[in-house]
């Protein structure tokens, strides 16, 4: 009798009348997990929020309330400005790189080629590897040394006669972080390809056929039929990639270590808190990161889950 009430009226859900009292047993089963998440995610977020408005610096906790001081200080903190510029450059290079390569590869693979499975696996395998491994290897590939100490990709370019491509990679002023983003593109573009490929495979063949019958060229089929249908995939990819670029930490640590020129908020939070013991400031950076991620992810979650229960 009480079962119908629990679902919002606007979401059609198949009738489930059978489990009456037993429903409550379910709660007991998930209770340990629920409690753990409530404490370790939500409780800890509230705790961090409290630290972010405290004067805590040094090894002894100090919860003296200082209002928004830590946030105000961040707003005029030169290092935090570098972090924001770096995050912006990283995000643009990383997200655009993954989308273009991912879409390109998916379109090529969708042409019904031989050994599709082989190529697909090859493009995806970096996903299985740790950012630390990726970082260590790309650190050597992108060795910025010039002149007769040329190595890594620069040396390869030199050997191939592509000298104009030789550059200082992550040692480039201002844009160095873009080199780090290339490592991240290497790791995640295959994943983006997989998302697009799934999207392409979901386009009914009849739809393409109908457009061809109407005299559309192959290019027009892509532009007018397929691409519009891929918008939801692009949106998911932008959110998944965008939110992970806000969190990037391991890859930068392994590739270039902790350098102010290549700093991002996640690393600043780490060093200021655990190396410098500025807990108040560290918590404030943590909260800024959380809010930025939440702005991206919460609408996406809401949208995805709604679709889920509609379909």
């Amino acid at each position: 009798m009480q079962t119908e009430r629990e679902t919002p009226a606007d979401i059609p859900v198949p009738k489930r009348k059978r489990f009456r009292m037993e429903n409550w047993w379910g709660v007991l089963w998930v209770l340990p997990s629920l409690l753990a998440v409530m404490v370790f995610v939500y409780g800890f977020i509230i705790w961090t929020a409290r630290v972010s408005v405290s004067a805590w610096k040094g090894l002894t906790p100090d919860y003296t309330y200082v209002g928004a001081e830590n946030f105000v200080n961040l707003a005029s903190d030169r290092r935090f400005h570098i972090d924001i510029t770096n995050t912006a450059i990283f995000t643009v290079v990383f997200v655009l790189g993954c989308l273009l390569i991912g879409l390109g590869l998916a379109l090529l693979l969708d042409k019904g080629i031989r050994m599709e499975g082989f190529y697909r696996s090859l493009f995806l395998f970096p996903m299985a590897i740790s950012f630390i491994v990726t970082g260590v290897v790309w650190r050597w590939l992108m060795n910025p040394a010039q002149g007769d100490r040329l190595s890594g990709l620069n040396l390869l370019f030199d050997n191939l006669g592509l000298d104009f491509l030789i550059n200082r990679w992550y040692a480039t002023p201002t844009w160095g972080i873009a080199a780090v983003a290339i490592g991240a593109v290497w790791q995640m573009s295959g994943y983006t390809m997989a998302l697009y490929l799934a999207g392409l495979r979901a386009v009914p063949e009849a739809l393409r056929e109908a457009a061809r019958v109407d005299g559309a060229s192959e290019f027009q089929v892509y532009r007018s039929v397929i691409m519009p249908l891929l918008w939801p995939v692009t949106l998911s990819a932008v959110i998944i990639l965008g939110h992970s670029s806000l969190k990037v930490f391991d890859l930068i640590i392994a590739m270039v270590g902790k350098q102010v020129a290549l700093d991002v908020p996640a690393i600043y939070m780490w060093t200021t808190t655990f190396d410098g013991f500025f807990f108040g400031r560290g918590a404030a950076i943590g909260m800024v990161l959380l809010v930025s991620v939440a702005v991206l992810v919460i609408p996406y979650l809401w949208y995805s889950l709604r679709q889920d229960s509609d379909g």
Binding site: V41, T48, A266, L301
Partner: peptide, 17 residues
């Protein structure tokens, strides 16, 4: 959804506690 959000949080927001 409350559970799911935990998958996306930047862990910097819970490391201190």
């Amino acid at each position: 959804p409350v559970l799911l959000f935990g998958m996306f949080i930047p862990y910097q927001s819970i490391l201190i506690p």
